[in-house]
Design a protein around this nucleic acid. Structure first.
Lengths: 139, 139
DNA sequence: GTAACCCCTGTAGTATACTTTAGGGTCAAG
DNA sequence: CTTGACCCTAAAGTATACTACAGGGGTTAC
């Protein structure tokens, strides 16, 4: 059995994060020692790495909670998980599109800027001031 | 002279947003009427559109404050503006890279998923559980 | 004169994923 | 028996860009 500090070290998170995950229902409420300390089975480290990996591909903690429910739901099917992943995939592609448009605009502007001369003749500031907006990405 | 509501309508923002911008130092403190109402010159609408356009290409309000300072700073040069834009450009490219990696991983996983069968045999959940993480995008 | 609409201030709430702080017990070593 | 490392709870703070709310006054049209 592990103390919270052991789990934190092995899982690569802080003890505060672990308590936060518990509070958010992402890890099972652990049993307590006589002194009130949380006692974890070693498997919980794997569980935490699941959470971290899911975060790494863009899932929020809320998403991850759903994923974890599916994992233990006997009625759930693989397509349920796939649907979450596909949904996340479109979210991410949407973000990439928005950012790509920003990148293109900024890139155009920085290329147009001679980088010398006073701000009064700055094409970037001019572009920002212009009435016709080429960007208008997301909002 | 315009009331705050007129500016809001013409600038496409809410009156609360205008007061917020003022509080953040993004728009000059306007003069007040005898009744205490803010009175704006029509030029402020352009100013607000500058802010919105800058947001559209990824600048934060803090960034925008800096840009606005440069705009009125006689000692500032065009390259100062360009530097901000280039800096923002790398930030955005960095975000795109992170998101692209997430997209690639998710895409691989969803393609590997047969979408039938129980969650106990889900390749996506397996991937999340695996000890070797292919993702590890940003954090 | 009253309803509908505008304006004012200051404070708190929203979302996300934590981190920090305050205040206080527990444990192992020397 | 004290020092340092560890554990506990509950509440508040962080960043960003607003939005909402409470409570109150001004203005315009009928």
């Amino acid at each position: 059995m592990l103390n919270i500090g052991d789990v934190a070290r092995q899982g690569g998170v802080s003890v505060e994060t672990l308590r936060y995950y518990e509070q958010q229902g992402l890890i099972e409420t652990p049993d307590r020692d006589a002194n009130g300390y949380r006692k974890y089975a070693p498997e919980v480290v794997r569980h935490i790495q699941f959470i971290k990996r899911a975060q790494d591909v863009g899932f929020t903690l809320r998403d991850i909670g759903d994923l974890l429910s599916l994992k233990t739901d006997p009625g759930a099917s693989c397509s349920d998980v796939r649907d979450r992943a596909l949904g996340k995939l479109s979210e991410i592609e949407e973000k990439i599109d928005v950012l790509s448009r920003m990148r293109d605009v900024l890139s155009t502007w920085t290329n147009a800027c001679p980088s010398t001369g006073p701000v009064s003749a700055c094409p970037i500031l001019d572009a920002l001031e212009a009435r016709k907006g080429p960007a208008n990405a997301d909002r």
